[in-house]
Write a protein that binds this DNA or RNA. Structure first.
Lengths: 216, 216, 216, 216
DNA sequence: AATGAATGAGCATTCATTCAT
DNA sequence: CATGAATGAATGCTCATTCAT
């Protein structure tokens, strides 16, 4: 168990081994319960080497977040083709997202659970990634409106809220799909598309749900 | 700092003070970073008394989860009137939910972040509450279908996925609304109703979004 | 489990209940591992009452030692008839001793193990009892010598050593007999009589084992 | 106070220092009253190092018992010459035993008092050593019988009881000799030889002490 | 490039003991 | 006669981090 203890590797390689071990350990045990001892052992190196390369537990965790955030956004971007219609882009992006989160559950735990749970500086690190995704979805909504030849009469703030809701729903479905093998990435994406696309269509058609007058 | 140090309180009262302090501390620092020392001091009692009444850190955290889960579901239930149409019930439930989470952000952090992040036995404790809410939303969807005189041709498994997505979206919007004072509970509820209700309507009308053929 | 919780008992009775509980708890858990909580609960009273009557854990333990030491020496004395020949007295005393220790194993644990293991002031408390027994055995040896019409040419210091050895052997056999049900008090007494009486007889006859000259 | 604080010792050396400190502390304070803090300080190291090398208080105490049990049996074995007559072997063994116990009183306290008083897993650890010694004495008795050209008509169970009694007497005399400087190892051994050897001789000659008929 | 040796600081938990009624 | 409420002081144990080589 743990990486084979090969000696004298170049620094870059060793660092990736350490990050692999760290993501796995942080993802499974949680940030606080993960011990540097366990990470070092899993990486097949001594603890001082981990400190030499990555400075501290905090820095190590931050490095994990950054690496995995970049990997996730890269996966989503790689799944999407800019020229296609907006719904197709959304569909492709969701599939890439769910595929990635189900392939790397430890990384997803780090990003979605651990980083958000343990305050600064981790929360803002992952918030940056999330903002990027929300912005992407927001763009897609606006593009969709244009494609439907409608001026989005949605105020910008409301579009942001809608994007936020969609991303939240996607995150939730990722956990849901990860919980058991019955739900595939494709099914999760289809479920979300059904709710979202229809809802967005109506929304852009101007038919909103109107809240009742605030009583007393 | 901390509660006023009143002496010789009956046990039931002290226990609530301890739970108040614990929810606040767990919600802000996180389960692991919270120290029993800090909780005891915030509650205005000595550590041994906390142990005498609540046994262990684990039991204390579990008691927090149970109390706050009960409070949240009670708040939602209290906000909903069973006789009204399904959309109105959903709207009222969402408003009650967002109002409660914004009033008690520490409790929301305990339920949504801390309990889920720190494994068993906490995760299943809060999962029970969540399952209850998902079941409630699922019922509402089916009721809405009946009200629209449509047999929901949605398979049960798909309804479950939709409910999961809506609850996830709501959770996300609760965090979003809590992050700053610009978004009110009412606005969060309206945003979600817009996406959800329209989407559900289309869905029940049988117009689903169809994924493209799987390319290979 | 524990004494029936009858209220308002006279002090003397309550004290005995407490001592019963204490002997049992100290004997089984050991002095340090026994908690005042457990003793109070087993005695069916509240902790402050234990303190009111017996002052402290140390005093409580001392009281246990005294009571049980008195009970043990009383039992031995009651088993012996002063007029009889010395060997018969020794035999009767040993039988009384082994019978008592096997009837009250917790008390024996308190006297033989716990009190000796936990230093002053307990060790000297039980040492007093032991000294009394050693003195009794010493007397018996001298009486036996007189009965055999021999001036014991044993120096007093050597008689003391012999008595010490016999008492140690008896203590050891008490543990041995308590360890399993195969050995009865009668058998333990017979075994010791066989070693001791023959040895003493030879000793008094002047035939001692002579150590070799101290070599180099 | 405590060992000289020399830095950076190899592990094996440090471990012995820790065991030295632990035997001394456990022997004087008792197992429960001894604190890991005190042991670490006496060993001239920090507490975490003690835990790193010896895992837990329980393991540390067990390691003490094992080391000292091995040392004591080794000392006895080293004092005995297999070829010599049985009485000479017994004499030499006893002298070695009393010499060792008086040289290492803390170790003797650990083995004879502390380990037996604090239950499993310690009791059985030291019981193994004791069984070894009892077996050795039993052998010696049988050899002595052969040397006297007598079939020991003692049943095996009775020989076991006799050996048990002798070992118990020896243990008691060790405490007695340790209590003050007036009694030397040589005197303790002589005292026990006098009781034992004469007693054994008579026993093997078939002249046993017969208990009176059981009355009523 | 890599590690064996070592620690300061903190944490959950327990216990003997007391006060106010 | 009796107790519910409360605590000061330890104790076993763990962890992130560093130093000397």
């Amino acid at each position: 168990m743990g990486a084979v203890k090969t000696k004298r590797m170049p620094r870059a390689v060793r660092e990736q081994q350490m990050l692999d071990a760290a993501v796995r350990t942080f993802g499974r045990r949680g940030y606080m319960a993960a011990s540097m001892d366990e990470i070092a052992e899993l990486a097949g190196v001594s603890k001082p080497l981990v400190y030499l390369y990555l400075n501290s537990k905090e820095d190590l965790f931050t490095a994990c977040i950054r690496r995995e955030a970049a990997a996730l956004t890269a996966a989503v971007r790689a799944g999407v083709r800019p020229g296609l219609p907006a719904d197709r882009q959304l569909w492709d992006g969701l599939r890439a997202f769910f595929t990635h989160t189900s392939h790397y559950p430890d990384a997803w735990s780090v990003l979605h659970l651990q980083a958000r749970t343990h305050g600064e500086p981790f929360a803002s690190e992952v918030a940056a990634m999330r903002a990027e995704i929300v912005a992407f979805v927001t763009q897609l909504i606006l593009v969709a409106a244009r494609e439907a030849h409608r001026d989005p009469d949605l105020p910008a703030s409301e579009v942001a809220g809608v994007a936020e809701a969609l991303v939240g729903a996607a995150e939730s479905l990722a956990d849901w799909a990860n919980a058991g093998p019955e739900v595939t990435a494709r099914q999760a994406a289809a479920t979300l598309m059904n709710v979202a696309w229809a809802g967005l269509g109506n929304l852009m058609a101007g038919s909103r749900w109107t809240p009742p007058e605030a009583a007393h």
